[in-house]
């Protein structure tokens, strides 16, 4: 770093809103141009038979048919191994976006709506469950899960009151196997986080397979926890080899997004919106003998999330 840059104070990064607004203006203009180019192509196509016939006759006569065909037809095959962005870039941006969120004040609640969706084949889509969650900021205090159907007692609808301590709840099945306190202790440095996960993650596959599975689980489970933790998890995920980005996917409820996965290696895939905010995850087919590898089998969708001041009262008669 040069001395001038060192002497001047750090400049605050652009806000997520400013970045999204700038991107939105650019994309709107790009779409306008694409639409007008489409109209122009359509117009050309209407007159094209005559143009093509004339061109073909001339080309045949002059013996330059091949060159003309290339010029007219073009090469529309997608590039085999070149991508617009790397998964590491996407995850780094996601980490920056997550890290820029302020930590929620004590006494407030992370609130999010979710859906679990099964996709047994290309045409079918079944919502297995949906609900709303309120998690106390800081991971201590009362929280609430409102879910349809209810996993407690097979009711169609219920409210489950949860008491959180260090991010873990007192009800089995309502929190991940790792407490946010454990995660927060890990989250100061992405390299240290990844190194520790590589050492401790259990299960099948290589160390990278296990680390990816663990980190994607942690990312999903960290919904509603502190921004620094999520930022560190995204940054750690960016360091795992074989991770690729698909910039043009749609999630299970049709929202455009960016999918990050390890094709052919791991079934877990995480999805961001175009502003690099996590909007869910998916499970893909990877093995032989089942659905085509890459087929989406199920999805967990974060419909929206925010921070609220109040925990709603459990609904009488629906408390489990």
């Amino acid at each position: 770093m040069n001395s001038l840059k060192q002497m001047l104070p750090e400049v605050a990064p652009p806000s997520r809103e400013a970045l999204l607004e700038g991107r939105g203006r650019l994309v709107a203009e790009a779409r306008d141009e694409a639409a007008s180019a489409g109209r122009s192509r359509l117009l050309k196509r209407r007159i094209n038979p005559w143009t093509a016939l004339t061109a073909g006759l001339v080309a045949g006569t002059l013996g330059v048919g091949a060159a003309l065909a290339v010029q007219i037809g073009g090469d529309h095959r997608p590039p085999e191994r070149v991508r617009l962005v790397s998964a590491a870039e996407v995850l780094s941006r996601a980490s920056a976006v997550a890290g820029a969120d302020g930590a929620a004040r004590h006494g407030r609640y992370f609130h999010y709506r979710w859906q679990e969706i099964s996709l047994p084949d290309e045409k079918s889509r079944h919502v297995l469950g949906s609900g709303e969650s309120w998690v106390p900021a800081g991971g201590n205090g009362r929280g609430l899960q409102r879910m349809q159907p209810c996993t407690e007692g097979n009711a169609p609808d219920c409210d489950v009151v949860l008491n959180y301590k260090d991010g873990a709840t007192d009800r089995e099945g309502f929190t991940g196997p790792r407490s946010p306190k454990y995660l927060r202790d890990l989250a100061t440095d992405p390299d240290a986080l990844l190194a520790r996960i590589r050492r401790t993650a259990k299960g099948d596959g290589t160390a990278d397979d296990r680390a990816w599975r663990e980190i994607t689980d942690l990312i999903t489970e960290s919904v509603g926890t502190e921004p620094k933790l999520r930022a560190a998890l995204f940054a750690a995920a960016a360091k795992i080899p074989g991770v690729v980005a698909d910039m043009n996917t749609k999630d299970a409820i049709g929202r455009p997004g960016i999918a990050i996965s390890r094709p052919g290696r791991s079934p877990q895939q995480i999805i961001f919106d175009r502003g690099y905010r996590l909007i869910g995850d998916r499970t893909l087919a990877v093995g032989k003998g089942g659905p085509e590898p890459g087929t989406v089998l199920s999805a967990y969708v974060l419909v929206n999330e925010d921070v609220v001041d109040r925990l709603p009262a459990p609904r009488p008669g629906l408390v489990r």
Binding site: E80, R81, V82, R83, L84, V85, S86, A87, E89, L119, E122, R125, G242, V244, D246, N248, T249, K250, D251, A252, G254, P256, S261, P263, G264, L284, P293, G294, T295, V296
Partner: peptide, 14 residues
């Protein structure tokens, strides 16, 4: 692009 789109490229070049 649709829900089932999946790209299976590895060793990507950006």
């Amino acid at each position: 692009a649709n829900e089932l789109d999946m790209i299976s490229h590895v060793n990507e070049q950006v």
